[in-house]
């Protein structure tokens, strides 16, 4: 009896040690996150002003604003989604609604997973070889958007597939049973139900695309361009590339630190907003579906 008690005591102590260690480490990670966010917000908040986001950079990018970089990033996000969203959603519909289980499905799935794992710098190389050089788009919005679009494609496909999978099969059976065709079922029944989750995926991929630097290095990004683009074959400045440039190789790194903090904060704000919007949307539509 005494021995048993000892064992159970030891068990308890072990558990207490292990659990407090895990708890501590988890909060440590969260603390790291807070340090990063708090530091960048603290340093960047003083730089933010209306002028910062609405003016052209001046004095070798050590003062003025980052207006052209913001506009450039918006254009690139829009352009890449124009390609990735329809293609990705259609691919996901094909995968989830049309193709039967078998080697084709497995193969496509494997390829999509592989594409998702390809490093972003390889997308940059590929975009440069295909769009910039082979198709002779040059360093342009078109080349950059397509490269970013390809990068976002696996993300869009994956989230859309999840959304479609979440639709209960009884909906499909009911629709098909009423004599609707496959496409009618998909477009009138499945897609409307899956829509909120698909949009959530879209928003998350926007957050991802807006911060990507490596794919645009050689396909579109301009070091300094004090005017807005006039067509899809123009170069643009972009926020992530701008941050890279002014924090590592600007004309005066010390002087442009302020600008760098501001740019970093804007990038973080974009990510925060897209994450927040996605989770809000999920919650909002989640409630709505339940009420019906």
């Amino acid at each position: 009896m005494d021995k048993d008690l000892k064992i159970s005591r030891k068990k308890k102590i072990n558990q207490a040690i292990a659990f407090s260690l895990f708890t501590f480490l988890s909060y440590f990670i969260v603390a790291i996150l807070f340090v990063i966010l708090a530091f960048l917000i603290y340093k960047g908040i003083g730089v933010l002003s209306w002028g910062f986001i609405s003016e052209m950079p001046t004095d070798g990018m050590t003062s003025g604003g980052i207006y052209p970089a913001i506009i450039g990033t918006l254009i690139l996000v829009f352009g890449s989604m124009l390609f990735a969203f329809p293609v990705g959603v259609m691919a996901a519909i094909y995968m989830n609604e049309y193709v039967k289980d078998g080697w084709i499905k497995r193969f496509i799935k494997l390829m999509t997973n592989n594409l998702a794992g390809v490093p972003s710098i390889v997308f940059g190389l590929f975009g440069m070889a295909l769009f910039v050089n082979k198709l002779e788009f040059g360093d342009s919005i078109l080349a950059g958007s397509l490269t970013l679009g390809l990068l976002a494609l696996p993300v869009v496909i994956r989230t859309t597939e999840e959304a479609l999978k979440a639709v209960d099969d009884t909906f499909r059976q009911a629709s098909l049973g009423l004599g609707a065709s496959k496409w009618q079922t998909t477009s009138k029944v499945v897609l409307p139900i899956a829509f909120p989750n698909i949009i959530t995926g879209l928003i998350l991929s926007i957050g991802r695309v807006s911060g990507e630097t490596a794919p645009i290095l050689f396909t579109v990004a301009a070091y300094f361009l004090p005017k807005l683009p006039s067509g899809i074959f123009d170069q643009v400045m972009a926020l992530p590339y701008h941050l890279y440039v002014i924090s590592t190789s600007g004309t005066n790194i010390e002087k442009s630190r302020e600008m760098a903090y501001g740019t970093a904060l804007i990038l973080i704000i974009i990510v925060l907003i897209s994450n927040l919007a996605a989770s809000r949307l999920r919650k909002y539509f989640g409630k709505k579906v339940k009420m019906n």
Binding site: I29, I36, E212, T213, L243, T248, V271, S279
Partner: peptide
């Protein structure tokens, strides 16, 4: 509460991490 926070950590662009690394 914690899970979305950790997912947020994944969303921050790598260039921002690089910048943080550079200054801190």
């Amino acid at each position: 509460i914690l899970k979305p926070l950790i997912e947020l950590l994944a969303g921050i662009p790598s260039v921002v991490y690089g910048f943080f690394g550079l200054v801190i």
